Amino acid sequence: MQCKDIPDGVFLDAVRRSPAVGGVGWRMSWDVHAALEFLVGPVPVNLFYAKARKLIARGLLGGCACGCRGDFHITADCTGGQCCCGIN
């Protein structure tokens, strides 16, 4: 399995399906990873973070893909500068 085998929309849907924390829509990486595996089956953690990095680089996802808690959020959902990326 490679990054290209996980459609962008499916990954972003996994973010949306994960429980939001902090009142501003951030999602923890382990919750997003679990939601993604529910949608597509087993995904190695290194592949999960590689796909997240690609989406972040393209501006579709905000957060951190270093292996920490993530704080993932969909940039299109950012409003009023509440997300770290500040994209509206």
Rank of each mutant, 00 (worst) to 15 (best):
77 D>L: 00
37 E>D: 11
79 T>E: 12
75 T>I: 02
11 F>P: 01
68 C>R: 12
52 A>Q: 02
42 P>F: 06
15 V>D: 02
11 F>M: 00
55 L>T: 03
52 A>W: 01
67 G>P: 05
10 V>S: 03
4 K>L: 01
49 Y>M: 08
66 C>N: 14
83 C>E: 04
16 R>L: 07
41 G>A: 02
29 S>L: 11
8 D>Q: 10
72 F>W: 07
9 G>T: 02
36 L>Q: 05
67 G>F: 05
57 A>P: 15
84 C>L: 04
74 I>S: 15
26 W>H: 14
7 P>M: 09
38 F>C: 11
3 C>W: 13
25 G>S: 07
61 L>E: 00
58 R>G: 07
34 A>R: 11
67 G>H: 08
66 C>S: 13
71 D>F: 11
79 T>N: 00
54 K>A: 11
23 G>M: 07
10 V>R: 15
42 P>R: 12
18 S>C: 01
5 D>L: 10
25 G>Y: 12
30 W>G: 01
33 H>Y: 12
74 I>K: 03
7 P>F: 15
29 S>M: 08
34 A>V: 00
87 I>R: 13
48 F>D: 00
24 V>R: 10
48 F>S: 00
55 L>F: 13
4 K>A: 05
37 E>C: 12
53 R>H: 12
7 P>S: 14
17 R>E: 14
53 R>T: 03
20 A>P: 02
86 G>Y: 01
87 I>W: 05
8 D>L: 10
3 C>P: 10
83 C>M: 12
67 G>W: 04
1 M>E: 05
35 A>W: 01
62 G>Y: 06
44 P>N: 09
41 G>E: 03
68 C>M: 12
39 L>I: 02
43 V>A: 04
14 A>C: 06
4 K>H: 09
25 G>E: 08
77 D>A: 02
40 V>E: 02
60 L>N: 10
9 G>M: 06
78 C>G: 04
11 F>Y: 10
32 V>I: 00
19 P>I: 08
14 A>D: 07
37 E>K: 11
50 A>I: 03
58 R>Q: 14
76 A>P: 13
85 C>H: 14
65 A>C: 11
4 K>V: 01
65 A>Q: 04
28 M>Q: 15
37 E>R: 15
5 D>M: 04
23 G>F: 07
34 A>P: 13
64 C>D: 15
8 D>M: 04
27 R>Y: 13
65 A>E: 09
32 V>A: 01
44 P>Q: 07
16 R>P: 10
86 G>Q: 09
84 C>E: 15
75 T>H: 14
13 D>R: 11
69 R>L: 02
30 W>Q: 13
4 K>M: 06
28 M>Y: 15
75 T>D: 07
77 D>M: 00
83 C>V: 03
34 A>N: 06
54 K>W: 06
76 A>L: 11
29 S>E: 13
30 W>P: 00
7 P>I: 03
35 A>T: 01
19 P>W: 12
56 I>D: 01
73 H>I: 02
54 K>E: 08
12 L>N: 06
24 V>M: 13
60 L>A: 14
54 K>L: 04
50 A>H: 07
